[in-house]
Nucleic acid binder design. Sequence first.
DNA 1: CGGCCAGTTGAGTGTGGTCAATCGTTGTGG
DNA 2: CCACAACGATTGACCACACTCAACTGGCCG
Lengths: 234, 234
Amino acid sequence: MYDFASESTPAGIDYAPIGSRDLCDVVNADCGRRSDAVRLYDLHEHLFFDGDEICQIYEIIEGYVCVYKLMSDGRRQVISFGFPGDLVGFSVDQTHRFSAEAITMCRARAIPMQAIDKLVEDRPDFSRKLLRFAAFELANAREQLLTVARKSATEKLATFLVALIQRHGHRTDGDIIVELPMTRTDIADYLGLTIETVSRVISKFRRAGLIELTHPTTVRVVDMDRLRGIAEIG
Amino acid sequence: MYDFASESTPAGIDYAPIGSRDLCDVVNADCGRRSDAVRLYDLHEHLFFDGDEICQIYEIIEGYVCVYKLMSDGRRQVISFGFPGDLVGFSVDQTHRFSAEAITMCRARAIPMQAIDKLVEDRPDFSRKLLRFAAFELANAREQLLTVARKSATEKLATFLVALIQRHGHRTDGDIIVELPMTRTDIADYLGLTIETVSRVISKFRRAGLIELTHPTTVRVVDMDRLRGIAEIG
DNA sequence: CGGCCAGTTGAGTGTGGTCAATCGTTGTGG
DNA sequence: CCACAACGATTGACCACACTCAACTGGCCG
């Protein structure tokens, strides 16, 4: 059995929370936190598939998921990563246009669409929160377009690391540490690169003294300013 | 003076309208179509700039705009194109994170954010429509990520043309015709390519008998099925 | 007619992809 | 406890697709 106690839910560094966390609070207050809707998902288990009917959306409680889309020949684009507190699978379509997969063992609360619809009907403040959430996600997706379409491999990785640090990094003995719960493949598919390129750039950052890796999934940031600089320009 | 009468507002081919058009109807009904809020924009005039405070959002009435973001070294990513009926500049942030520029002379109605906020407060159905609109835009931006990050130049152009045809194409004497109101530069910056590559791929499509160009901006689609095939796979 | 600008086409280059070998960790079974 | 398999990550050699630089074309307007 997976030990969730060993997982922390870091508050993040300079990250102003918006949207999903507030949203989930409203939903939970209203649903009375029905724990039966919370489920454990195995590594690589899917929350939903591209094409599935949308019956419920998911609040990630512990662990990590990735939202992605496949092409018929197997090429994959990771759209976003879902961290604890994030809301995944929201749409106004009848069917999902993306798939969501657990990239660690994780716990998620399924929120029936009827509950969402009812809240939208009954509680105008909920509707507004949902709107804020959607607009926030929209701005993020659009920023990601710039990164993926116009930045070099080096800039992409720096941008990815900086964003991850801002949202999910934590300080330990004055050092900035960030965990990479996703594999190199997931990172590559998120940034429109290959695993080899991701690996090469990370090694380059290591040789350049920007970061250190105690473990392939644990990054200690040595020179945050330089990393930020690379993320912005090149 | 630009002759708007010569511009048509095509209904599009297999395009189920969603969001912005309904939305604008609600706004207009409520604002009583105050024509003083409608302005003419010159070619290359900006509706707003990245960083501007958000005081109003815009309904495109006639003509075309592009929403984009610049990097400090001049690299540009076009986020979306705004067509007649589209709503541009919506966000929940205090400031715009993108710029919007008229790519033809165009007319747009400025809708003050106070009006939007008031409608969100007073009319729950408006809030829902706005939510539908945001969710629709979100799904589009995410699909665009797949195209930009994972498809080849050929596939990108095919995808772009197919989408443009579905939304804004029209039939004339049984032929499918679509206008390209944007320059090759705009297309390139939308797809994460260069003008030269865009030009080469269009020439390739022409030589392959997929399309014909009566004018660099007017595409007659000869083989829609094959174009669709290329857009999906390769 | 000439200048201007968007678009097209060509030649050469470079960034990141492909293919392949190796390393390191984890987990399983003898 | 060690051997081995399995898998993710790393590194290297080579290659191709799209970019860069450059010349040229064609339409439009003064």
